[in-house]
Nucleic acid binder design. Structure first.
Lengths: 241, 241
DNA sequence: TTCTATAAAATTGTCAACAAAATGTTCTGA
DNA sequence: TCAGAACATTTTGTTGACAATTTTATAGAA
């Protein structure tokens, strides 16, 4: 039988359950509610999400493929603790990929997509003047993902989502958390350069922005522990994230 | 207990078995020995690789995350048949990422790494004058992966390996297989631009190169069937691939 | 107390049996 | 001959039990 393109494959309910776990952990990492090194027990997760162990297993396997979770044979799954090498690689990849993205956005005509970025910056400003630091942190990361979304390319969006989330882990482990992650108006400048249609400038500003984040990192990993139990970390109001 | 960085986690034997399957399928796709749409039965693969079904399952799951295999609920696993959208996204991602790579290679000093590219080009020339088409196809794709390797970034290498392999699927499905995939000396030109330290030129040449491949694609998918059985496709002499 | 050895408990890894779904075949009737 | 229903076979999905390993708890000796 040849497959018709229009044929519909329903996604089994199991896949949705897996995605729920994956998303919850992604969000918790992304918003720094969970520390690198946190043990993710299979039975524990199974109870929290009311799913079978096998399902948890697949979710953890997927997360390990994305570099969010480390799997250690016979020991279990842990929120990834990025090494120095990981940090270097993630930032270099971001430099290369995001530079390419802003260049293309600046070179070609994506005006319609840029409006979303404009309104996003307004939100960032609001959070800044409200001194809502967690929100600002979240929005700051999101800016980069929205940049990718402007290319209308789900592959790039997913790649950047992974990179930004891994950056969150790196900052949690190696960042001072003060200088880092608090751009004044650098996003604004980058977007302006794109709107002006100046790829070189946009790239330059973006690279400086990333370098600034990178400079805020130290070489000695912080040790930190979660302040909440897994249950509270993973299941929570997601209405604004 | 806190984890010492030097601590060694042995990889369970199972992971190696999984990787064997993943690599075999990657190679088969990459070298176009297997057609898009080919059914990958769990029991069949289990018998070929002498592993349990569970393990086959995980390997297929991993491949589906990488876009090489499509998983259809209750139907099974099939070599991915990239859609028009997939094709667009893969090529756009390659443009963005590879442009970033060659720019960085041209801008910074990676001379030591470039020697490998030089010797790779010699191999390509050899294959070209020998009219060894399968080998030339393989080497042509590899050139792009070696470009990524020159950045010394395993993340980028893996990303590019996925993109190049997916390109192989796209060409298998939409390509004319004649003009496509047969660069004369475009790789040579790109490398020269890098060696000259000219990022703009390197990027321009690379983009033209990718566009040329893209132009060789038609809109109507070819239907093709494998000429060999799965066993022969997957298990074979890998001494020169 | 502190360290080590031993036993108990808990957690992860694996497998086989079973259930559910899809595929293939046979049979019937027009 | 063809269509379609009924049945049988194959393949995928899921669960639960068990084995292997690690972690925790316990006890004893220096």
């Amino acid at each position: 039988m040849t497959l018709k393109k229009t044929e519909i494959y329903r996604t089994s309910a199991g896949v949705d359950q897996e995605n729920e776990i994956v998303e919850a952990i992604f969000n918790a990492v992304y918003n720094q509610r969970i520390s690198p090194g946190t043990k993710l027990g299979e039975t524990a997760l199974g109870e929290i999400f009311k799913v079978s162990r096998e399902r948890v297993r697949r979710a953890l396997f997927l997360l390990s493929n994305k570099g969010i979770v480390d799997l250690h044979s016979n020991k279990g799954a842990f929120i990834s603790s990025p090494s120095e090498k990981d940090s270097r690689e993630v930032f270099q990849a971001r430099e290369i990929i995001e530079a390419g993205i802003v260049r293309q956005l600046a070179a070609k005509n994506f005006e319609s997509k840029l409006e979303i970025l404009r309104s996003h910056l307004k939100e960032e400003d609001q959070a800044r003047s409200d001194w809502d630091r967690p929100k600002l942190v979240r929005l700051s990361g999101e800016f980069h993902i929205i940049l990718a979304e402007a290319t209308n390319n789900s592959l790039l969006v997913e790649t950047l989502r992974e990179l930004v989330t891994r950056t969150s882990l790196i900052v949690a482990l190696l960042g001072d958390n003060i200088s880092t992650w608090c751009p004044d108006h650098e996003h604004e400048l980058i977007l302006s350069a794109i709107e002006k249609g100046d790829p070189d400038l946009a790239e330059k500003l973006l690279l400086e922005h990333l370098k600034k984040i990178r400079r805020g990192l130290s070489l000695t990993p912080k040790v930190s522990r979660n302040s909440l139990a897994l249950q509270e970390i993973l299941i929570q109001d997601t209405s604004n994230e």
